[in-house]
Design a protein around this nucleic acid. Structure first.
Length: 207
DNA sequence: GTATCGATTAGC
DNA sequence: CTAATCGATACA
């Protein structure tokens, strides 16, 4: 399978987000290949989206998002974890899709080693777990997904017979009502709610 | 300059 | 429930 062409990414983040579900995210080539089916994503919409890192303009951290589509935007979350996004839209739009969860397909033993976990369904469940399982860090920020050792496979997205469900995005405090989280309904590797829920997620108490 | 908050997770 | 830990942001 080939890497998805750049034109795939040169569309609005919500369109790309849905189109990514069921596709294969691949790290490396040959025997050392790691891969997983994308089962959960979130769309972010640059300057038009208060929840986006790009909402307040370009910084050293989010520079990649302002570049051409089809590149990996990887940032440090909570000072501890790394999160993988794909840049979408036209250059300067600074839109992106966060990869929140994978169903591990290849290199599962290596993922188990990296994660110190046996449960396949939990290996890449959650954005920080995705990068941990694949061995991605901010050192990989800016990688070109159409040519590099990190890519997304072309071909019909196999959804395993599951429908695409949507919900509000997880872990944000602004623009909380926008239903821009997309996932394969009921898939065991999805983090958080696995069925479509209307309305704003329940706010955790304490702050 | 200091204080606070995250596109989170693992562990009590 | 909290700690971890750092870039970005808010404010004196």
């Amino acid at each position: 399978m080939r890497a998805l062409p750049r034109r795939f990414y040169a569309r609005p983040s919500r369109v790309v987000a849905r189109a990514l579900l069921g596709r294969l995210l691949v790290r490396g080539r040959g025997r050392r290949r790691l891969s997983g089916r994308i089962v959960e994503v979130e769309a972010y919409d640059g300057a038009r989206d208060p929840a986006s890192h790009a909402f307040r303009g370009e910084t050293a951290r989010n520079r990649t998002m302002f570049g051409p589509p089809g590149h990996a935007y990887i940032y440090v979350s909570y000072g501890v974890h790394h999160c993988l996004n794909v840049v979408t839209g036209t250059p300067g739009t600074a839109a992106a899709v966060l990869i929140r969860a994978l169903e591990p397909v290849a290199g599962i033993a290596a993922m188990r080693r990296r994660r110190g976990l046996g449960d396949r369904e939990r290996l890449a469940r959650g954005p920080g777990c995705v990068t941990r399982a694949l061995g991605l860090t901010v050192a990989h920020d800016g990688l070109d997904l159409t040519s590099g050792p990190l890519w997304i496979a072309d071909g019909p997205p196999r959804r395993g017979g599951r429908r695409i469900a949507r919900s509000p995005r997880i872990g944000i405090s602004r623009a909380v009502a926008r239903p821009w989280r997309f996932f394969l309904a009921g898939h065991p590797c999805v983090s958080g709610p696995r069925t479509a829920g209307r309305g704003v997620p329940t706010r955790r108490t304490g702050r």
